[in-house]
Design a protein around this nucleic acid. Structure first.
Lengths: 198, 198
DNA sequence: GTCTATAACGTGATAGAC
DNA sequence: GTCTATCACGTTATAGAC
């Protein structure tokens, strides 16, 4: 009802963009405040330290992922291909929205330099995301839709690592490389590429 | 003959460690100079700007890779499995030597914040590395040793992206995850894991 | 909840002596 | 080739007015 948007959320929105575009160490409170038309100190009011900001940011990623999963389960509860495509559409949206990379990947690349609270939230998000994909893969294999050797957990790890890496590689080598990786992932699962490939 | 080691090389050695441990933006000239027991200004003598340092660093990675390939070709010219294992031993050494990540991955994560000269060298290194792996995969498939669908270039891209991502994931989730990814990569190629798996 | 003002610090970089 | 000394700047963070 108020024309005013929630500043706290707006800060996190901008921080998320900056994280995935530049990394945690390469953006500042001023980058955020300028973008919102406020001052440096106002951001500190909402997040006293950068550690607070970073941890809240990763926590929100995880919460949103959980909400996204819950919604997807309702719509495509019994369709492994649709669930997989839903999962793959996340990094795809990162790529299309300014060649952003996976937040987990950036944070892990800077892991030894970021606040401990942020690392904890990252671990939680990472494990959650991988576990859900493993579930999808297992069901798809049981249905005879996916084909792969080894455990679903192992295969899920490989796929998430590849997606994370492919988003990064696309920065240096061009977006086409991400689509190639995506296609190969599906090929290796024995399914045709149904997500746009370029 | 002189007891003195080449300072320029020592700087690059330390910079390489710091890059793979902390990222390009999170280390300083002082981190390097202190480690070598010299002063900040001495480092600037060898590399006037950080851009110079970063570009020289990535160039050296590529040159060393080329030399490494040349040596490996002599020893294992006709053994795709040994050549693949050689390739996989590189990220493995990163992992074991202090949970370092792939230099290409870190740089790509920070891509929009690093000097253009450094980006150019990164692109060159990345393309070189992937092209060589594709060659190995193609020969291995022709010999009936590897099994995979799609082009060797596509498969090479997927594998390099996965290795890059897996090194990062191992930071948050533990080194075991890298070995799991490694095993799955080989499984998907239809070969048994011959590199230590944990 | 946002502002002004400022503190305290680390950074990349340079000048000039040795 | 390395040193001392210093500069200009950006950063996180805080105090206190409004």
């Amino acid at each position: 009802m108020t024309g005013k948007v929630d500043t706290r959320q707006a800060i996190l929105d901008r921080a998320a963009e900056l994280l995935q575009e530049r990394g945690f160490n390469a953006f500042s409170y001023k980058d955020i405040s300028t973008h919102l038309g406020i001052k440096n100190a106002a951001v500190h009011y909402h997040f006293p330290t950068k550690s607070d900001l970073g941890a809240a940011l990763m926590r929100r990623y995880r919460e949103r992922f959980d909400a996204w999963v819950a919604e997807l389960e309702v719509r495509h509860a019994n369709d492994p291909v649709k669930r997989l495509d839903g999962y793959l559409s996340v990094p795809l949206s990162y790529l299309r929205n300014g060649r952003k990379v996976c937040p987990i990947g950036v944070v892990e690349a800077e892991f030894d330099t970021i606040p401990e609270a942020m690392r904890d939230e990252t671990r939680a998000f990472d494990a959650r995301s991988r576990a859900w994909l493993a579930e999808v893969l297992e069901e798809g294999r049981a249905s005879g839709i996916f084909r792969f050797d080894g455990s679903a957990a192992d295969k899920a790890l490989l796929i998430t690592a590849a997606l994370q890496g492919a988003l990064q590689v696309a920065r240096a080598g061009g977006v086409r490389l991400f689509f190639v990786a995506l296609r190969q992932i599906k090929r290796d699962l024995g399914v045709a590429a149904s997500v746009p490939t370029g």
